[in-house]
Write a protein that binds this DNA or RNA. Structure first.
Lengths: 180, 180
DNA sequence: AGCAGGTGTTTTACTCGTAAAGGATTACCC
DNA sequence: GGGTAATCCTTTACGAGTAAAACACCTGCT
């Protein structure tokens, strides 16, 4: 075993699912370095659990997370965005954005306006209803997330955020570079 | 700003996407505590990036990640599993497992055997081809993951694994309890 | 002007996961 | 024992995302 959780040893009684899986793999393939699983497996599992939990407040408002991400992008940038910009901003494909925009405009949360110069592009903005919806959900959402994360003490959250930021920043940097 | 990354300050030049998003939100809603975003947003984004990168070695073998998870569950437990157990083990729905098993058996990677006692249940095991495939992919997969994670120094990986394990363990514990 | 090529968006065909209903079988309980 | 409930798995209908092609439009070159 490599260096693992260095934090106050007593608290790690948690025994998460991943550590069990890793133990099984090591029993079958004792020669393999399962270190990466303990990071990547946990990230994946955390993401799955958090999303499942997180979706609850959104679903009450009749939104999926990708839809909320799209509305949120419009809200937080504060100006109109084209479909392409929205796709980049929400890390999804253009086609997915097209479909979501169709639904959101039908629901009256988003408005589209054609560019006068370049008639290929459209500009999307939130309607008042859309803006109100986002502003209504966001505090609730953040409060909920805070309560979920409260299983970690604040310094732990800070460390975690820092490490993830470091990892993420570097991954985003060389994402295309590591094409094996 | 609350306590953030406490690690050697100089290294955090990374500026990941999430921090930009958080800054935008704070400009629009200065009163909101965006702390949770810095953790949850990063977990989600890391998961997305890692999976996208991770899938490369698997796709070469003609497997999706959920398929590999299923085969892996059979391999690491070392014994036969029922569809229900596989669903629990891979955190997916029973219906999804049914479909995947259908394909994997057609490809000759998995065999099914009916229970003699209870004729509702089936027992699945890897064929020799299936076992060989998993054993062939896994080292490659782990090596690849190692190289991806190498953007973090080993102590950082250890801390990250520890913190994620702590978070995950506690989330899994009270997952049903926080149904707001 | 006119056409080749590039860009921004949408459409199409397809895959995959899910929720809900369905079938089959077993277990409980009077 | 026999009917009702519980369990296990599969099927069905459907919603959502993707990749690739199609479409519409602009740009630059000759």
């Amino acid at each position: 075993m490599t260096a693992a959780n260095g934090r106050h040893a007593g608290a790690t009684r948690g025994e998460d699912t991943v550590s069990g899986v890793v133990r099984q793999w090591q029993a079958v393939h004792p020669d393999l370095d399962t270190g990466p699983m303990e990071v990547i497996g946990r990230i994946n599992r955390c993401a799955a659990l958090l999303q499942q939990a997180e979706d609850a407040p959104l679903r009450r408002a009749g939104l999926s997370r990708p839809e909320f991400d799209l509305l949120g992008a419009l809200r937080r940038t504060g100006h109109e965005l084209t479909p392409g910009e929205l796709a980049r901003e929400t890390f999804s494909s253009g086609a997915a954005v097209t479909k979501r925009l169709k639904q959101l405009t039908e629901r009256g949360l988003v408005e589209r306006r054609g560019d006068t110069r370049d008639r290929r592009v459209a500009h999307l903005r939130l309607t008042e209803a859309g803006r109100d919806l986002v502003d209504g959900i966001l505090p609730e959402q953040l409060a909920y997330e805070t309560s979920v994360l409260a299983v970690l003490d604040p310094p732990g959250q800070g460390e975690l955020a820092g490490l993830l930021g470091e990892l993420l920043g570097r991954l985003e940097g060389r994402l295309g570079a590591l094409r094996t």
